[in-house]
Simulated scan of single mutants.
Amino acid sequence: MQRRAALIQSALITIPALMLAGCGTSAPASVTALRSIVGADLVGTRGATPADQRKIDRTVVGLCAGGVWTKAECKRHGEGR
């Protein structure tokens, strides 16, 4: 009975730990590679609705904070508001 309880306790600890380890993310190999994937088409883009614009702006904030876009591109996106 103790052996079974120990096995169950071990499984309850190990399985979530393995699941979390498998769900990890790794950084892109380089900002240049990520930039080539993402591009800069969203710079200055305006959404058709306020909800669309919020989605675009949230994406832009992440790209700017991650250094994918240059400071000039980030500044240009914020112009014209």
Rank of each mutant, 00 (worst) to 15 (best):
R54L: 14
A21R: 11
C64V: 06
I37N: 11
C74F: 01
L34Y: 06
Q53Y: 14
T14M: 09
C74Q: 01
T14N: 09
R4G: 01
L34A: 13
A29W: 06
A48C: 07
T70D: 02
G78V: 01
T25L: 05
D57W: 05
A5P: 02
I13R: 08
C64H: 04
T32A: 12
Q9P: 02
V60L: 01
R76H: 06
A72N: 09
L34W: 10
L7S: 09
G39Y: 13
K55H: 10
E79W: 01
E73W: 00
Q53F: 10
S26G: 11
T25C: 03
V61A: 15
R4P: 00
P50I: 14
K71Q: 06
V43Y: 00
R81M: 04
E79S: 03
T45C: 05
D52M: 09
V43W: 00
A17E: 15
T32D: 15
G47Y: 12
I15A: 05
R81W: 04
S30G: 06
D52N: 15
G80I: 02
L12G: 11
C23E: 07
L18H: 06
V38T: 03
S36H: 06
E73L: 00
K55L: 10
G62E: 13
H77C: 05
Q9K: 08
A17D: 13
R58D: 09
A33I: 14
T25F: 08
G22E: 12
I15W: 06
S36M: 07
I8T: 04
A40V: 11
L20T: 10
G39A: 09
A48V: 10
